[in-house]
Nucleic acid binder design. Structure first.
Lengths: 156, 156
DNA sequence: CAAAAATGTTTTGAGCTTGAAATACTTTTT
DNA sequence: AAAAAGTATTTCAAGCTCAAAACATTTTTG
């Protein structure tokens, strides 16, 4: 009955979502902090650098700066700085795109590929440890669930 | 049987966890990006500022700088900067702790309380919208699940 | 074909973030 | 009570992050 049965349950739902958000944030920040720390300790590197290397590792032909910032969903200027430092370290190279003098292609060097392979192997072990609470089936279910959510986000 | 039935399934489990982690990261980063954008647009503020205000709002008597960085799980120096700017804007005040001239207590001002109330109300609506994929029960279940995980993290 | 619009990247300025060093004060030890 | 150890906070240097502005080049349009 009554037109106002909604408000009460809507509010309870809203509180439940807020609680979920706070837990999600705490969990992912915790894992991220641990990953940062280990990348720093074990490889003298950072998460943003790892993310750039991971993205480039999927494209042997390299990526344009704009494509890279698109894949990573960070700003152009941001990628400029990270790639600068990665290039200084010989992990990536910038290559002119023939026929378009505005664009540059960024590619992992041989050294970059080797370095990424080492880090990615360690990274997978770390994740396995840090998300050890979830067994294979639960992880698979949740991954599908959050994939749906991530997709809904994209349409916004 | 065989001694090597473990490796195969362990690896599949590890892949499932890695996939989960990537989805989790994508989802939470997406929501965070949206929150940042809205805080900027609607309130000319940022997530770190919101986090500090939220923490202080739970302690009428104020928090010491070290307690604040403890609650937020960020470095001391980090909090110094955010509190500096919040103080410049009249959102918080630093108060001397009687009997200990090293410490300072940070408290929301009246203005800070009012500002936080407005932002928190909007924030709750935003989260309700952004996590709209999850109904109340699912949100409650998942919150408990990630709480368990976050607790395991703390023991590390 | 010149002007205008679009595309690709870097620069800039402000704020966030960290770990380590510096500073200031308090408590404990000798 | 001086020395040493511990606690509270800020400063520093380096890197990450964004939005907006600046630049350079290419494509489209009038």
């Amino acid at each position: 009955m009554s037109a106002n049965s909604q408000p009460r349950s809507a509010s309870a739902e809203s509180k439940a979502r807020l609680r979920l958000w706070l837990r999600l944030l705490k969990s992912t920040r915790g894992v991220e902090a641990e990953l940062r720390e280990r990348l720093r300790q074990e490889f003298g590197s950072t998460l943003p650098r790892f993310d750039v290397m991971a993205a480039l590792s999927r494209f042997d032909a390299g990526l344009k700066m704009s494509a890279l910032s698109g894949v990573l969903r960070v700003s152009n200027g941001n990628v400029t700085g990270i790639v600068d430092r990665l290039a200084d370290d010989g992990i990536v190279v910038r290559v002119q795109v023939p026929g378009d003098r505005r664009a540059t292609l960024v590619r992992l060097t041989r050294k970059g590929q080797e370095e990424f392979a080492r880090q990615a192997a360690a990274h997978e072990l770390w994740i396995d440890e840090l998300l050890g609470d979830f067994d294979g089936d639960e992880a698979t279910d949740l991954a599908a669930r959050f994939d749906a959510m991530a997709h809904r986000e994209e349409d916004r």
